[in-house]
Design a protein around this nucleic acid. Sequence first.
DNA 1: CGATAATACTGGTAACAACCACATGATGTC
DNA 2: GACATCATGTGGTTGTTACCAGTATTATCG
Lengths: 246, 246
Amino acid sequence: MPAIVDPNDYTPKYYQLATILRERISSGELLPHQPIPSERQLEDIYSVSRTTIRQAIDLLVRQGFLYREHGRGTFVSPQKLQKGISELTSFSEDMRARGVEPGQKILELKMTVPPEEVRQRLELPADHGELLYIERLRLGDGVPMGLMTSYHVLPEGLTLDREGLEAAGSIYTLLQEKFHLIPTEADETLEAVLATPREAALLQIAAGSPLLLSVRVTYSQYRRAMEYVKIVYRADRYQYFAKLTR
Amino acid sequence: MPAIVDPNDYTPKYYQLATILRERISSGELLPHQPIPSERQLEDIYSVSRTTIRQAIDLLVRQGFLYREHGRGTFVSPQKLQKGISELTSFSEDMRARGVEPGQKILELKMTVPPEEVRQRLELPADHGELLYIERLRLGDGVPMGLMTSYHVLPEGLTLDREGLEAAGSIYTLLQEKFHLIPTEADETLEAVLATPREAALLQIAAGSPLLLSVRVTYSQYRRAMEYVKIVYRADRYQYFAKLTR
DNA sequence: CGATAATACTGGTAACAACCACATGATGTC
DNA sequence: GACATCATGTGGTTGTTACCAGTATTATCG
């Protein structure tokens, strides 16, 4: 069992160790508020240095699985129903994590010059050209969950139509495989609004119903803005969750 | 200037170094997307080991001031107008960070047995006794921003009335100084709702106006739930901000 | 000239050693 | 018995060394 060494280890040791510990936690072997073996003990158990041990524990602490107490030990965090949120996820990933099957209905897809506010949020020069604009109804288990409007910054010269997008699967896959652009960070604001008649009709609710409005700007690994996404969620079907830390 | 050594250093070196680098960034000396000196160079500049350098940079990366690129260097993140959110803050801190002067008007304060839902969210046994209940109107620059309802878990035997609370300043200060209980983590959900007539009256808006509903459970450093807070914010005055990462 | 290989940087991982700061229980003293 | 002291175990900080893994530039070869 202490076999941590993956001979042709592609993944670093601290990561392997973190995985092992995470499994010992979620399997119920290590219980909430119970101490895990001390760092010195783990050195012997898994035959790795304390450096590596601490790196693995650091990771699990950041992920919310463990917490440390100076002078006392390292303990298992109580399991939360929903954990590790405040993570950057797509609508589809978000829905699947909630046990709901995601779906969509594309209402419009075109290249267009963005409104001034969007251009500024994307930190683009005033003379920047057209962006990919998509408007779609987002579904969860077949029912409307929200209305999504997005503007995507495409690499120089590239344009996309509905066929091109469907061929590529998703915009993210395309940008990642062809241009090595990976979404890594995002700023999101949330507020409450009332449904306009059009929104109400599309979302199959009464006009004047409450909606949760999310506006997000996503950044690539180079910290360049790559998309502006606005979603209004049906308040009766969607709730936002965040984990806050000091 | 390379004087990083604080002779009677109370704070660790990596923390001092992080502070220095953070200031070099916010002062504009180090510009967005520009590389900072390499880790080997920083070793010479500040006469500390690479271990310490990396620990300082790790901190700044987590705080969003820097980003790394393997094989290329470490770079300054573009400054965001509002940064470092998704942090656990009190209403007062939140308001001050937005440049608004916080205020409050206590509507009710008593010891009471909590509703079942609150008791469960706080992970308290079924026979748990009374909690401190507070209902207050939260103000920003004197105008109503939201209505806050909270239940606080007090240490065995302790009760609080309005006088005791005012004497202590804030519940947090009291719990921290007397019982070493520090809020360190919280789970928060957000959704959109419509104002009830009572809420509308208190917040001085029309009934049926949209409100942003936040429900938060705060945990101590021992990962024990210590309070349940529900706030409804005026949608026209309040916007929630979050920074998401992969 | 163009493609390839070598090289010299960057950050990433890992081991080992030493000491500090905090918590706790055992021990001793008054 | 109450209290201070100490020993020991815990995580926290720091330094040193070595090598791995990407990136970019330079030198070299065909």
